[in-house]
Amino acid sequence: MKEKSKILIKFGERVREVRIEKGLSQEQLAHIADVHRTYIGMIERAEKNITLINIEKIAKALDINITELLK
């Protein structure tokens, strides 16, 4: 099995952190971001190499600046 990239792990942890702060479930976030419901879980578990387009969708759905999401 391929080792997960540190940046994907950090990004997934950050998405989970902000999502929980906002009181959203993974399914709610997926709906707002217009992505598949399982996709958010895969991002949070660092199982997907997310595209810039989807980073923007998730940032908008979380009502957070992309740079804040990438911290």
Results as ranks from 00 to 15, higher is better:
10 K>F: 05
28 Q>S: 14
39 Y>N: 06
26 Q>P: 00
71 K>R: 14
55 I>C: 09
63 D>A: 14
59 A>P: 02
28 Q>P: 02
69 L>E: 04
45 R>A: 08
71 K>I: 11
38 T>K: 07
45 R>W: 01
69 L>C: 05
11 F>I: 03
2 K>P: 15
30 A>D: 10
49 N>V: 07
47 E>A: 02
9 I>W: 06
69 L>A: 04
28 Q>E: 15
58 I>Y: 00
50 I>W: 01
33 A>P: 06
60 K>E: 13
12 G>H: 05
35 V>S: 07
7 I>A: 08
43 I>R: 06
69 L>Y: 00
19 R>L: 12
35 V>H: 07
2 K>M: 14
68 E>D: 15
36 H>K: 11
46 A>F: 08
23 G>I: 12
46 A>S: 11
10 K>D: 14
25 S>A: 08
48 K>T: 14
39 Y>W: 08
22 K>C: 11
33 A>G: 10
66 I>W: 04
20 I>T: 15
54 N>L: 05
49 N>Y: 01
15 V>A: 05
3 E>H: 13
41 G>H: 09
55 I>D: 03
20 I>S: 06
70 L>W: 04
48 K>N: 11
51 T>V: 09
47 E>T: 00
52 L>H: 03
10 K>L: 12
11 F>L: 15
69 L>R: 01
20 I>W: 00
31 H>A: 14
51 T>M: 00
58 I>M: 08
1 M>A: 14
65 N>I: 03
34 D>N: 15
45 R>K: 11
11 F>K: 03
48 K>S: 11
51 T>E: 01
57 K>Q: 07
25 S>E: 02
34 D>F: 06
49 N>S: 11
59 A>H: 10
43 I>Y: 00
2 K>Q: 14
56 E>I: 09
16 R>H: 11
11 F>T: 03
15 V>M: 06
68 E>R: 12
4 K>T: 13
23 G>R: 13
26 Q>A: 03
30 A>S: 06
49 N>T: 08
31 H>Q: 15
4 K>D: 06
66 I>D: 07
47 E>R: 07
59 A>V: 04
54 N>K: 12
64 I>R: 14
52 L>S: 06
7 I>F: 09
39 Y>T: 03
13 E>M: 09
32 I>A: 10
34 D>C: 11
13 E>F: 05
54 N>M: 00
55 I>M: 11
21 E>T: 08
44 E>K: 02
9 I>H: 05
4 K>E: 14
55 I>V: 15
43 I>L: 10
12 G>L: 03
29 L>S: 10
52 L>I: 09
36 H>G: 13
15 V>G: 02
55 I>Y: 03
